[in-house]
Design a protein around this nucleic acid. Structure first.
Lengths: 297, 297
DNA sequence: ACTAAAATCGTCCAAATCGTCCATCTGTCC
DNA sequence: GGACAGATGGACGATTTGGACGATTTTAGT
């Protein structure tokens, strides 16, 4: 992680150094001070400020951000189409600009994911099925997406050490990485200590992770199910275990068909990341650390 | 107990060595001096200083870790061990620092990949087979690796538009993403316009990509082979096509056993990324843009 | 034990930042 | 319009920082 001086940040935002110093002293921007009293800021801290204040970035490159980030406000629906086109063309720079712009424009990530990212990849999937796109183009789009999400990951402030814990991933055979990554970021933005365990994990492993860390929330992203019966069976055992531990399980994904859902109980369904965010908010507001763990035995 | 040098502590705190020395001399940080006058600090001393000054550590993980500056062999060895430990523990910050430090120390990426990254993941794989690690810990390590590689990707300058083109990926059923990502970065550092097409791609798609873009080099990362015969058969067709187009195919990966290799021709074998880099150098030095495309039809 | 390379020493100085003050600008209320 | 409160951007000397230098100490390798 690199630290930025007031001069750099002031130039990046396009304001005078004096103003920037005042904002720091008023607590608007997270600032650390050297023993000598010099201020230093992190990219995440500045990004948080920019989002809260809707402040445009004049020279984003000074903060290591894409060269056009934050210069203009973006509208969600227009961005969706632009993002989709850029993804299909493999234009990583444009993709990055669109997403980082939206992020800095204080749009909730969950909303961006639901209205821009997810639809774009759905469209790509459709175009791939129609033979309009080659497989590698779809894979390349995923690569690009993962890279950009990684950057946004770094722009989010580190969660508090006492923030509620969330784990999640995808089940064995489900190699889709984007949805579970999106879930992780959604929860991180909501202040959770969310960790994506990865894709294609045996349920035994998921259980082990849950038992070891005992999170408040566990998300399961389901984009592929080979065998409904096996899935339901294994998953049911997992859910039982979760209930005993007092872990809330959230499931979402395009493969969760209605018949499949009816065969699973004790699950919070999330159709989209805004659902997940709402669930997380409910959980962390109505914090009941004692009673939740009660039924162990 | 381990003692830290000013350089390490300075990096951990995120200030210059000069400033740190000054703070030591002012008594802000408890310091022990060797008979020769070199300063040494204990973790406790640094922690006390940080708490009194309420200064957050920029890189807390570096405390306890040797510095990675320099280019000697042992630096790389130590880095390999650090990286491995941090990967197993899921400590993304440490991993990032180790790799980015090495990168900024002007180590060739190929060398870092061969001596640090690849061994670390090999060890993880072994420990996983010995049941020492859970699957999710291995997956998490991959997630971390991919994110960091994404960052290094951005740190590399964009390739020239007239740089030689390279494409690559993994075959259907081979979901390992790290090796092919490493290959992409290796070539990018060598100035190539390298694009990773992704993992688990049908050979038909790989062929389509090759035909459409006609790269100078095509890498195939092979970390998993379900059926040797089928692999050889399909792969041979691919290699023929490549030869017609004048595309050099480079293959590497732990699953390329000797018997498998003998059944495949017209391939440049790469045991490690330094091999790949050497191959790339040879190709781009002996540049023969005309004759290469000759035999089409 | 000895040599060569790497890291640290102490010192110096230019550049950056500090805190503070003040003139200017903007929007509001009377 | 005019008084007022609040925010901005620039200027000032004092302080802090970060990088450079040759000399010295530590470390790696034989």
């Amino acid at each position: 992680m690199s630290l930025f001086t007031p001069k750099q940040v002031a130039q990046a935002i396009g304001v005078s150094e004096s103003s920037l110093k005042r904002w720091c002293d008023r607590g608007l921007i997270a600032t650390v001070k050297t023993p000598g009293g010099h201020r230093k800021m992190t990219a995440a801290g500045v990004a948080t400020f920019l989002r809260e204040r809707q402040q445009p970035l004049v020279r984003p490159e000074l903060l290591g951000l894409p060269s056009n980030a934050g210069k203009s406000r973006r509208v969600l629906d227009r961005a969706a189409e632009q993002f989709h086109q850029a993804l299909a063309a493999g234009d990583e720079e444009v993709c990055r600009q669109v997403l980082v712009d939206l992020f800095l424009s204080e749009h909730r990530l969950a909303r961006v994911f639901d209205t821009v990212v997810a639809p774009a990849y759905q469209q790509l999937g459709q175009r791939w099925q129609c033979r309009e796109l080659e497989v590698f183009e779809e894979r390349r789009a995923v690569q690009i997406g993962l890279r950009i999400l990684g950057e946004i990951h770094r722009l989010l402030a580190d969660p508090e050490t006492d923030a509620p814990l969330a784990l999640g991933g995808t089940w064995e055979g489900d190699f889709y990485q984007l949805p579970t990554n999106l879930a992780e970021l959604t929860l991180r933005e909501s202040g959770w200590r969310a960790t994506n365990l990865g894709s294609s994990l045996p349920f035994a492993t998921l259980e082990a992770a849950m038992t070891e860390h005992c999170p408040r929330l566990f998300w399961l992203s389901v984009s592929f199910v080979a065998d409904d019966d096996k899935f339901v069976e294994t998953c049911s055992g997992f859910l039982e275990k979760a209930e005993k531990l007092g872990v809330v399980v959230a499931m979402g994904g395009r493969e969760l068909t209605e018949p499949l859902r009816q065969r699973l109980r004790a699950v919070s369904w999330c159709d989209g990341f805004q659902d997940l965010e709402a669930l997380a908010a409910k959980l962390s507001s109505g914090n009941e650390p004692e009673s939740a763990k009660g039924g162990d035995g």
